[in-house]
Simulated scan of single mutants.
Amino acid sequence: MKKTTCVLLLFFVFFSAKAAKVDTLEVFSTAMNKSIKTCVITPEGYKKSSKKFPVVYLLHGYSGNYATWVKSFKDVGKQVDKYGFIVISVDGNYSSWYFDSPIDPTFKYETYIINELIPFVDNKYKTIASREGRAISGLSMGGHGALYLSFRHQDVFGAAGSMSGGVDFSPFPDKWDIKKRLGTITEYPENWEKNTVVNMLELVKDNKLKLIIDCGVDDFFIDVNRNLHTKMLALKIDHDYIERPGQHNIKYWENSLKFQLLFFDNFFTENKIK
């Protein structure tokens, strides 16, 4: 793994009357030769505790950033305190889609997260540094990213989720800067084929990965999520799948986050690390 350096900024956020705390970090990415901000949310009692904590990585959607989960989700601090794990709010640029771009060497967000950010977090914080103590989820672009990274790195993540995820972006060839990361779908169809989650289900073997996927019935991604669910059923891939009334918006995701963090808490509990 590549060496990662960090500058810890003096920025603390407290949620309601409880003591969940946010550190804003700058983690230097050797792969992309730049510093990238990250928010780390630790639960009440973290500082005084001698134990290690499970970790949930959260990925924002298109046009979001490292602070999305802190600024836009009013209950995230309460949830961190409730479950007693660490949450990492990752920055994936506004449109990285969380993979290493095959056409733009300045976008290597898979390498950054797996080889640079996670090792840094495990070194800096009191984490359970194993797949049994690590989960990942995200919304929209981040939902695709969470499944993409977990499918490809099942030695790193034991559980993963997607909220309104763009799990198949081929029906949207001109949207959300995807062609800037992969090239156009007509010129580089193999890039789209290899980097779309719905085409990667062969990687999910032996049902080692615990999965939760949800999408609102009025979301523009509902059809691709239903298609992913159908394919997973056909392949006998265990997963929780939820459809609820809702659109592609913060109201839906605030509710989704509660379901997904509960799912991850159950995963950590089943692995006897809490």
Score class of each variant (00 low, 15 high):
S130V: 02
N225Q: 13
E132V: 09
L8I: 14
C39H: 12
R152D: 08
K272Y: 15
V167K: 05
V80G: 03
A146T: 07
F221Y: 15
S95K: 11
C6W: 03
K124C: 06
M141R: 00
F264G: 03
S89N: 11
G138Y: 05
T30N: 08
E202H: 13
A17Q: 13
T127Q: 02
L228I: 14
C215E: 04
G183W: 13
P173A: 02
M232S: 03
P171S: 03
K48L: 02
V7I: 15
G84R: 08
T5K: 13
P171E: 12
L25A: 06
T38S: 00
V197C: 05
V198E: 04
I128P: 05
Y94M: 10
F14Y: 10
C39F: 06
K208D: 14
N115Y: 15
C6H: 08
N199L: 11
L147E: 01
Y112D: 01
D177H: 15
R152Y: 12
L59T: 00
G142L: 10
N191E: 10
V40W: 07
S256K: 07
G45K: 12
D206S: 13
S16K: 14
R181Y: 02
F99H: 01
S256G: 06
K179P: 00
R134E: 04
A146V: 01
S130W: 03
F73D: 02
V204C: 08
L59C: 03
I128S: 05
D168P: 10
Y109F: 11
S256F: 04
K236C: 12
I103N: 01
Y148I: 05
G92E: 02
N225V: 14
E44N: 11
V217N: 14
A160G: 08
Y57R: 01
T127K: 09
L209F: 13
N123F: 13
F151R: 00
R134F: 07
Y57A: 06
S130Y: 09
T4Q: 04
G143W: 09
F267P: 02
G161A: 11
K126V: 11
K52T: 07
F11N: 10
T186E: 14
